[in-house]
Each structure stands twice: as C-alpha cells, then as structure tokens.
Amino acid sequence: MAGRITTQAFFDRSTGTVTYVVSDNATHAAAVIDPVLDYDFKSGHTSTRAADEVLAYLEEKGLKVEWILETHAHADHLSGARYLQERAGGRVAIGENIREVQATFKKLYNLERTFLPDGSQFDHLFKEGETFRIGEVEARAMLVPGHTPADMAYLIDDSVFVGDTLFMPDVGTARADFPGGDAATLYRSIRRLLALPPSTRIYVCHDYPPAGRSPRWEATVAEQRANNIHVRDGITEEGFVAMRKARDATLEVPTLILPSIQVNVRAGHMPPADDNGVAYLRIPVNALPRNASAGGAPDPARR
C-alpha cells in the first residue's frame, strides 16, 4: 500500500550525496540511509553539518531511529553512521559482502592486525532477500553488486533506495572499475531493479546534474526504463559493458576514495588512535591504479 512511509532527502552539495530518512507514518519509526560525515581533505578535519541536519529533522518529527542503512562502502564521502548512532540510536547495517571489500582494503591499507574483515564492525549484515521492519513497514534487502561486490538496495513499501547503481536518467549509471567491480554484473543488478513494478519510486544516492538542471534524486522504474542514457530498455548487456568500460577508463579517481573507504569499512569508526591520542588516516602511495587522474574527465566524482 502506498502512503505508509514518508521519505525526506538531504542533499550534500560538496559530495553530491543524498541521505534519506524513511519513516513509518503509523509508528514514527525511522531508517537513515547513507549518512554523511563532512571531511575537509586539505585540513584533515571532520565536521557534522550534514549529519546534524538529519538529527534536527528526526527531533522535529519525533522519529525513533531503528536502522542506519549503508548501501555500500562509499568512495566519495565518509560515513556519518556512528555519529548518528551515538545521538539517535539504531543498528548500523550493510550487505554481508562487505567482508570481501574489507579483505581487499585491509591489504591495500595494511590495516592493523586487530581489524578483522568479518563484518563485525557493523551491527547487522543483510543477506540477499532478507526482510526486516521499520516500525510496521516491511522492507527487503536486495544484493545489487557491480559497482562494488557489496552494494545493497533497500525496497521499502513502494520505494527502492538503490545506492550507487542507477543515477537520474540523464546521468546514467555508476562506474564499475573499483576493486571487485564488474560492468556485466552491474548491468544484471540494474535489470533486477528495473523489473520492479513500473510505478516503484527509485531513489538514487548521488546526483551530478548536467548544466542547467537542479539536483534531483527520484524517478520511477518506468522513467528509468524509458530514459536512462545507459540502461534504458533496448540497451543490451554487451552494449552496456562496452560503454561502461570505455567511460570508466576516462574517469579520475574520486577525491575522497583513500580517506573514506578506510573509515567506511569500519562502519563509520575512525582508525584507532596512536599512543599520542591522535587518529591517523593512511594514504597508500602508488598503490591505486591512476585511471585518468593525470588528465581525464574533469569531474572526479562523476560516474
């Protein structure tokens, strides 16, 4: 039934990220999806402007947080999950394939021995097709790998929150060249999403609007199938893979990939502080592929 939930979006212009609060109208229970912790790369300082906007809304509406849902370990912003949890409660959850991502990046960062790539940093790991509740509303976790192995979408009532799989129809789809990513897998995940009823509302995790358009983050399955520039009906898997590989080869490495992932695989926790009481982020030198970072697409976040 439609009308059982309220969805409120918060757009972070600095990273193009959309955080959602989804609440059950009957019980005022809520889930927060993909919260942002602000990070200034130049100074190394974090701040909580984006997360505080979410907290203010939760307080204003009298909402009780039951879940803080991550769609994946983001490469373009630090997670605000733990900050929100400390102030509003809820369980921090992600898909169970986060273990694969953790194992990959534990090696890249040479993380401390006590960091275990077993998902235990999160309060809950969703399996494919697992159902859960936000108040009285049933939700379902959908594994949609391709951008990364651990991407999840969350189907809540008549809406689906798709993370970094689909973007708005005039922007297209996510890149598939991160460790463990695969363009063919991404295509199949997207076609699963587009097999949902045509009126299903798709909420994207990012928007990078073309010139002249304001940020947007909602489109129906029917609109995506008719108009998405990368995966509209009629585009084959072979054609999509060829397009995605060619496009990905032109994209720069996201600006915040190195600081963000080492925090996000920890469910939003900072690394353990050194004996001087300061936490340090590790930047591996000459370890990531450069892609087009020496002269490719001018917008490093664009997919």
Rank of each mutant, 00 (worst) to 15 (best):
L258G: 03
Q262I: 01
A195I: 06
C205H: 15
T165W: 05
V171N: 07
S189G: 13
D157R: 00
R188K: 14
D177N: 14
D233W: 13
S199P: 12
V162F: 11
T255D: 13
L194F: 09
P179Y: 11
L258Q: 14
F167N: 08
G212Q: 04
C205M: 13
F240W: 07
Q224R: 06
N227L: 08
V204K: 01
Q262C: 02
G239F: 11
L166H: 06
F240D: 01
L251H: 13
M168V: 06
G163F: 14
V263A: 01
Q224I: 03
L258M: 12
D164R: 03
A219T: 09
A174H: 08
L194C: 08
N227W: 13
S199M: 08
V231I: 12
R175T: 12
I229C: 03
I190M: 10
V241W: 15
E237Y: 11
A219Q: 09
E238H: 14
L196M: 06
V253C: 05
R225K: 14
R201H: 15
A211L: 09
V263W: 12
F161S: 00
R201C: 10
R191Q: 12
M243L: 09
A249P: 12
E223G: 06
G163W: 14
A174R: 05
R188L: 05
L193F: 10
H230W: 15
A219I: 01
A242I: 01
A183F: 13
D177Y: 13
V162C: 07
L196F: 09
Y208H: 15
H230D: 15
P254R: 00
L256C: 05
L186I: 08
R201Y: 15
C205T: 12
A195E: 11
M168G: 02
V231E: 04
F167Q: 07
Y187R: 08
P198K: 00
S159E: 15
A174I: 03
V253Q: 11
Y208E: 07
A195T: 10
L196Q: 06
R201P: 14
V162W: 10
R232L: 04
V253D: 03
P197G: 02
L193E: 07
P198E: 14
P254L: 00
I235A: 00
F167H: 12
G239V: 00
V253H: 11
A184H: 11
L258A: 10
D158E: 15
H230M: 10
V241L: 02
T220N: 00
P215C: 03
P169V: 00
R188I: 00
G239D: 13
P197V: 02
P209L: 00
C205Q: 15
T200E: 09
I202C: 01
V204D: 03
G180M: 07
D177V: 02
A242W: 15
D248T: 01
V162H: 09
I229H: 08
T165C: 08
D248H: 05
A219C: 05
E238K: 11
F161D: 02
I261K: 00
G234K: 08
I257Y: 15
E223M: 07
A174G: 05
A184M: 06
Q262R: 01
E223L: 03
T173W: 04
V253W: 15
D248R: 04
V221R: 03
D177R: 13
L186G: 07
D177A: 08
G239R: 03
R192E: 10
I261S: 02
L194T: 05
R213W: 11
P215Y: 09
L251S: 02
P215G: 02
Y203H: 15
